[in-house]
Design a protein around this nucleic acid. Sequence first.
DNA 1: CTGAAAGCGCTTACAG
DNA 2: CTGAAAGCGCTTACAG
Lengths: 325, 325
Amino acid sequence: MRDVAARAGVGIKSVSRVVNGEYVRPETERVIVAAIAELGFSRNDSAALLRQGSTASVGLVLEDIAEPFQSVLTRAVEAVTLANGSILMTASSGEDPAREKQVVRAFSARRVDGLIIVPAAHSHRYLLPDIKAGVATVFVDRPADGIDADTILVDNFDGARDGVAHLLRAGHRAIGFIADTPEIFTAAERLRGYREALAKGGLPFDPALVHMQPPAEEEVASAIDRMLKRSPPATAFFTGNSRITIMFLRAIRNRRDRPALVAFDDFELADMLRPGITVVAQDAASMGRVAAELLFRRLSGDAGPTQRIYLRTSLIPRGSGEIPP
Amino acid sequence: MRDVAARAGVGIKSVSRVVNGEYVRPETERVIVAAIAELGFSRNDSAALLRQGSTASVGLVLEDIAEPFQSVLTRAVEAVTLANGSILMTASSGEDPAREKQVVRAFSARRVDGLIIVPAAHSHRYLLPDIKAGVATVFVDRPADGIDADTILVDNFDGARDGVAHLLRAGHRAIGFIADTPEIFTAAERLRGYREALAKGGLPFDPALVHMQPPAEEEVASAIDRMLKRSPPATAFFTGNSRITIMFLRAIRNRRDRPALVAFDDFELADMLRPGITVVAQDAASMGRVAAELLFRRLSGDAGPTQRIYLRTSLIPRGSGEIPP
DNA sequence: CTGAAAGCGCTTACAG
DNA sequence: CTGAAAGCGCTTACAG
């Protein structure tokens, strides 16, 4: 910019004015525009933003960006971020609290204006200084532990309850529940929904019908096997997330008998399997959009009370959930 | 930092030294560390990087980050980027050249050290100034038009040729080819592979067996229908990407006769359909990793000639490609 | 209408 | 071993 000013024989501030579309005398402007073109100058936004005191950037911390739910969420966050003139930075934590902390630190050391986080388990009190310093922070999919912050969730409890109730209505009386470890908020909430549906249906809760572990192909398969072999055998299952649903499908693939299934979270081709898979669908794009919009509202001054927003899920019957006992 | 220095009663440079792990007298260090803690100071990396003349950041421009191939690629790029101490910025172009240009401009205005781009069609000569200015640039999945630059591709030609040859070996003599518009490099290359396989098999090329359009459910369905009804009818198909493969599966869903199918690009549950879908698999994670590694090699001074790297594809037989005519 | 000075928050290059 | 000055590339706040 200094070079451009020298070349055009003007002050550096006039170049800045032209670059920012402020008024300068037309003749002066012409000279400056020419100098810019000759030197191939382009303004260094990082420097401009440093002086202005913002970075016009948002950090998105996911558990795994390659997971379909999260990549769809990312696209929505990206769209809102770009529409607001900001840049999006992304990083995956791999469900590792130390790694999450590390990437969050990297983002806040760069002074991102805001953070959107799918929190790994464990306390998020380490974020308090950043939040106090004015970094807008929104949690998605799971609430943060130990701090009060804006949070966007789906209605895990209602969704699971309705899905299990759907199986009860079809006449099932022994319903297996396969999900991730209850340390994960969503898994715990879905378990609550499962229990609530059983209670409303007048059925006792039987721990032998519950398997909650970090997803592993073989363990899921043997849990299913065990539940199908006990007496009375499970005649239906509720799976707690897509990865587990797919493990479930692989596990029962070669059986003659088809237990009924309702799965939490929709997935590509769920309708193309035979039978089609009945799911409790959650809207990842809405979640991302709502989170990013709330973030930018905070950045433009909304200092209202912390929000916790629940997005509705919807039950989509496709066949697997309508198989009778 | 100035506040910390004042509080500790030292020069600002000593604070900088402590923050950067350089040597200062232990007593001095203790005082500074205490001041940092009391004031809750954290170094502003953006400011530090401005002075240092880099941004330790990479911009990744995709067509759509929610598409499985690209989100897997993103995760790999992210891993390499973070391992090199840089931050990853992402943006989707939606296959729109104007939008691509806009996000690339936004990234280079912030002086990213490098760019990884899945290029939308149209000339990329607009990047020449940035490349000349030292922005390391790697194209993935498709080559850039009009400029010489590092590029990572899969072997679209060989992969398609081998996939079609696989159908020929099963005895098919009329093979439909459904893909995206030939303006897209990968689609054009896969068409070349299709033609090559036919030629090697001694079969004439019949344009009536080719449908190349931006993916649209109904058009794909009617193209398939037309090819199945002509005489001699198509007995097998080669689909040019996952979106089209899924449209294909929906289109033939309710037919009694099952044409054979080999699909370019693998997808979740391809093995769980009946029959399983035979695919030409490409390795998105390797593509992302190789691209990012090449980028960082360039950033650390590798000024060797421009590279064009082809990654091998692999044919995975699962049933649909082995159906006889 | 335009520009010189100061400053954003750091680091570089020195001097002591 | 430590710090004052200059500078990264801009914008802010003024003065003229």
